[in-house]
């Protein structure tokens, strides 16, 4: 049987959703034989592959790099899932949205720094004006709010796709 190609992506988030994903305990063993993890912080692949079946996105779209990534991912993914509050609502990363970017960087990297004062420019992507939910940039097929969403909810989505079912959009969900 052809394995389901699954990717995970980590945009502007705390990685807690990835932790929750790993928290599925023994369920990971039965899933492992049926899915292939093709991209994400948990594997080595450098470039996002073509023809991915399911991509779980953690985090808000916060930088130019996030934006480029998510657009490419959308083109190469059949089912795009916003995993967790940051991807669904903006959540904590969006708390900076009322502050102009330059003011924010100044406060953190100059006024707030003890040594090495200065806004980093090399090797870091430029911040967008605001951190915003994934759905505001590309089409999202399913939203799993929660901070983080329970492991069962995440594995349930993968299990549904494996069974050829449409993931249940009326799951019991909770923000926060």
């Amino acid at each position: 049987m052809k394995k389901l190609k699954v990717a995970t992506v980590w945009l502007d988030g705390c990685s807690g959703c990835h932790m929750s994903l790993l928290d599925m305990d023994a369920a990971v063993i039965s899933l492992a034989s049926k899915i292939e993890l093709v991209y994400g912080p948990l594997v080595d692949a450098q470039d996002f592959p073509e023809g991915v079946d399911v991509t779980l996105v953690e985090g808000a779209v916060s930088s130019q790099d996030d934006l480029n990534k998510i657009q490419k991912i959308r083109q190469r993914t059949a089912i795009l899932v916003s995993m967790g509050d940051c991807a669904v609502t903006g959540n904590v990363p969006a708390m900076r949205n009322g502050i102009p970017v330059q003011r924010l960087l100044q406060r953190v990297y100059v006024e707030g720094a003890i040594e090495g004062k200065g806004v980093p420019t090399d090797g870091v992507p430029a911040l967008l004006k605001q951190a915003r939910p994934v759905r505001e940039f590309v089409k999202v097929d399913l939203c799993l709010p929660g901070c983080p969403p329970p492991a069962k909810t995440i594995s349930g989505v993968i299990a549904a796709v494996l069974d050829g079912r449409k993931p249940d959009t009326n799951l019991t969900v909770k923000f926060g």
């Binding site: 669904v88 609502t89 969006a94 009322g98 605001q130 505001e136 939203c143 969900v173 923000f175």
Partner: peptide, 18 residues
């Protein structure tokens, strides 16, 4: 939101400074 099955919003967030 939970009881009504609201898992996302269909509108753009306002993000006001308050």
């Amino acid at each position: 939101a939970t009881n009504l099955g609201v898992s996302t919003v269909r509108l753009a967030y306002n993000f006001p400074k308050l």
